[in-house]
């Protein structure tokens, strides 16, 4: 019994850690897509910017806390840079441009080795309080820290989307002509939403780096963006609570399926592909039959009319 708990507990800790990172990452996208209606297919770029900035600032001598702040700020700033020329584009163009942006960024990370060590990645960087916390308890510490951060982000976002500011975002999502006709600067609100969403993704990037204590460009493939999309849609677009539950469900699924190859006659890479097939099918079926997600309100969903 004791041994059972001993193996199960770290396992659950791992799932919760990954879930909290994905939850924060997806909350950022949910602000952009769920509440404002911005199609961002390049969300992973900001995860990468956050992770790389934090690690590289820290390695060049900045205190860890300031490096994380730098990661967040720089992610938000890149959100601004991306948004200024593109947020006036039609939604399908925006989809293509943002996904292209994230891929180009990944190529830069891969190829500018003087800056990023390219495909070899970076490891051995400092993690928060690593000298204070005993190694065997480190993940538990990280989990508590991450849950606190998640709670803060969640509460802040709830407050924002329930404020008049959030009301403007929702009106833009549904029909931007209305807020324009009422004197709201739609473009500026969309830009704010993208900046904040990107900054939150940047924070998630720093958290990801600390957790896996290794980053390389291929951690940031476009598929991560779509993981966030699935999490949001699963949980119900425009529901922050749903996004967190979605992240938990999704990460549990990811991790449980790592063991199912005991029951299925697949090799490891086949299992990986199988998992992606299930994810793809899930995305299709959700969009086709239950676009309001598990926790979303049908009346509030501005998707299919």
């Amino acid at each position: 019994m004791i041994e059972y708990v001993d193996t199960l507990l770290p396992y659950i800790t791992t799932i919760l850690l990954i879930s909290s990172i994905y939850a924060i990452f997806s909350l950022g996208l949910n602000l952009e897509w769920g509440f404002t209606g911005i199609i961002n297919f390049g969300h992973v770029a900001f995860l990468a910017i956050g992770a790389y900035t934090t690690v590289m600032f820290n390695m060049s001598g900045f205190p860890l806390f300031l490096s994380v702040i730098a990661g967040i700020v720089l992610s938000g700033f890149f959100g601004l840079l991306l948004g200024i020329p593109t947020l006036r584009l039609r939604e399908d163009y925006l989809a293509i441009v943002t996904i292209g942006f994230s891929e180009v960024l990944r190529f830069i990370l891969l190829n500018e080795q003087w800056l990023t060590r390219g495909p070899f990645g970076i490891h051995g960087f400092e993690r928060p309080l690593q000298d204070v916390i005993p190694y065997q308890h480190y993940n538990t510490f990280l989990l508590i820290l991450y849950l606190v951060i998640l709670a803060i982000i969640y509460l802040s976002l709830e407050r924002l989307v329930r404020s008049p500011w959030g009301r403007v975002l929702k009106s833009i999502r549904e029909d931007e002509a209305v807020p324009s006709a009422l004197g709201k600067n739609v473009f500026w609100y969309r830009l704010q939403s993208l900046m904040i969403g990107s900054a939150i993704a940047g924070l998630a990037g720093a958290m990801l780096a600390f957790y896996i204590s290794y980053i390389d460009p291929n951690t940031f493939k476009p598929i991560e963006t779509f993981h966030a999309w699935i999490i949001i849609i699963l949980g119900g677009t425009a529901s922050n609570k749903g996004t967190i539950v979605g992240a938990l469900v999704f990460c549990t699924f990811l991790s449980v399926t790592q063991f199912t190859n005991r029951f299925l006659p697949f090799t490891a890479h086949q299992m990986g592909a199988f998992r992606m097939i299930v994810i793809g099918l899930l995305l299709m079926l959700l969009m086709m039959y239950k676009p309001e997600g598990i926790f979303g309100k049908k009346e509030e969903l501005a998707l299919s009319d």
């Binding site: 008049p164 009301r167 929702k170 009106s171 549904e174 807020p179 009422l182 004197g183 009319d305």
Partner: peptide
């Protein structure tokens, strides 16, 4: 162009300037 996914009072409360 009513904002159909918001309530009637939310529709109204959206409008005032300099909030």
């Amino acid at each position: 162009r009513a904002l159909t996914k918001m309530t009637v009072s939310e529709n109204l409360m959206l409008a005032p300037k300099t909030q």
